[in-house]
Design a protein around this nucleic acid. Sequence first.
DNA 1: CGGCTACTTGAGTGATTTCAAAGGTGGTGG
DNA 2: CCACCACCTTTGAAATCACTCAAGTAGCCG
Lengths: 255, 255
Amino acid sequence: MPTAHTMPMEMLTRKLDSITRLGEAERSALLSLPHTVRSLPARHDIARFGDRPSHCCLVLQGWVSRYAALSDGDRQILSFYVAGDMPDLQSLHLHRMDHNLATLTACVIAFIPHDELRPVLRRHPDLADALWRDTLIDAAHYRERITSLGRRQALGRVAHVFCELYLRQRVVGLATGPSCPLAPKQSELADALGLTSVHLNRVLRTLRQRKLVTLTGGVLTIEDWDELVTVAEFDPTFLHQDNDAPAIHEAAKIA
Amino acid sequence: MPTAHTMPMEMLTRKLDSITRLGEAERSALLSLPHTVRSLPARHDIARFGDRPSHCCLVLQGWVSRYAALSDGDRQILSFYVAGDMPDLQSLHLHRMDHNLATLTACVIAFIPHDELRPVLRRHPDLADALWRDTLIDAAHYRERITSLGRRQALGRVAHVFCELYLRQRVVGLATGPSCPLAPKQSELADALGLTSVHLNRVLRTLRQRKLVTLTGGVLTIEDWDELVTVAEFDPTFLHQDNDAPAIHEAAKIA
DNA sequence: CGGCTACTTGAGTGATTTCAAAGGTGGTGG
DNA sequence: CCACCACCTTTGAAATCACTCAAGTAGCCG
């Protein structure tokens, strides 16, 4: 079985398969994209506010976060990315970064030059559409986060993000049973959910006591999927995993 | 001077001019797009959760809101749109609505069939890129809202959304002096900012007393732009109005 | 004038934060 | 192998921001 390191672009076709239907021409165009693979340490900025990136990046291993830094030193984590995600696609059309992109854990990341990607997208408009769609799904995730922050209280917010991160990993094969990796530390989850790490910790205790989920040592274990979904008011529509509906509906049975 | 009603697509070229550079071929392709213009009453759903829209819509007059409805009857307003915006562009690639789109005020809206738009975008990839860019800017607005909801308290949130809505209208010519229309009612602003209308009302009083802004009768008047920007921690980078930087920097002088 | 709807204000409550400090755990060097 | 340090997690008590409930005012339209 090829490792992420040896077949980077295969990671991408697999991800895109979950959200769209690629033709053979598009698939092979993707697989032959020039790219550079780099290993980065944890907590390393990939792109900073104000930068003008010249490459898109594809996560092969590890977790990446997108975050905004506020003047008072606070930060808001906007989203998490796992293997298969292209967190930086937007830089193709938004030339100046309005936030930061950084590794959360040690990562292996493939960098694809804009100048190589652009002509390929011109020759394969279906591929361009697939990537456009990917950025629109990213936006759908943002919308769901807004709803969480605006209208759910802490318990629901945490339950909701756990549902999301578990399913997103299931779809790309990073979770099979009731458990999945969950790299963000409590303080990072808190920064993503608009909570303090102190309060997040209390919410985790509640979830543990109510036997819904457990988070220990970077592993999330779902103990009662149905109840978790209820607490979160979770509806997977926003994931737009049209091609993987079964994977999502199976979650209820397995976890 | 042509009214919005007689020259709908011109509205769109003007909006796109503010975020990208269109060639003549793209411009005329836009202007000749088939479309239907309709007048809709206030509070009218344009597309509902679960729908599969067959048209994109372009706002010609009035205010439109995107919102999520929660099971307990609460709603979260995700964004506001004004004349020139195409709130429904994403439906080109995300086939099932994961939220709702509705008029806030009485509106005039142009509907463009997907089936007409798609081939035009294939013939004019630069135009497709411009619209892709537009959806990416929409996502940038979401990110900024997440930051507001997660890390700013009520006063900053309200100040921030006022800065945003004022500038967005300036750029398309809907605001010239220190005032601009602001159609959302207090309860709607509250639903957008994750506040109760009671608390929003108190925040408005504070902003009024501190002589930063006044909101009366659907008109927002900026009294102290610099101080408002400070309270909001507002940075216009996320608007990505690369072609209208002057308009944005002038705001400080005029308001 | 009556009946809407939107806005405004007060008083009490509650969810989350702040401040402070005590456990765990893993890595490093003596 | 243990001591120590750094970082993360956990808990307690007090403060605060925003919410809930409730009532009252203002404006608009028939």
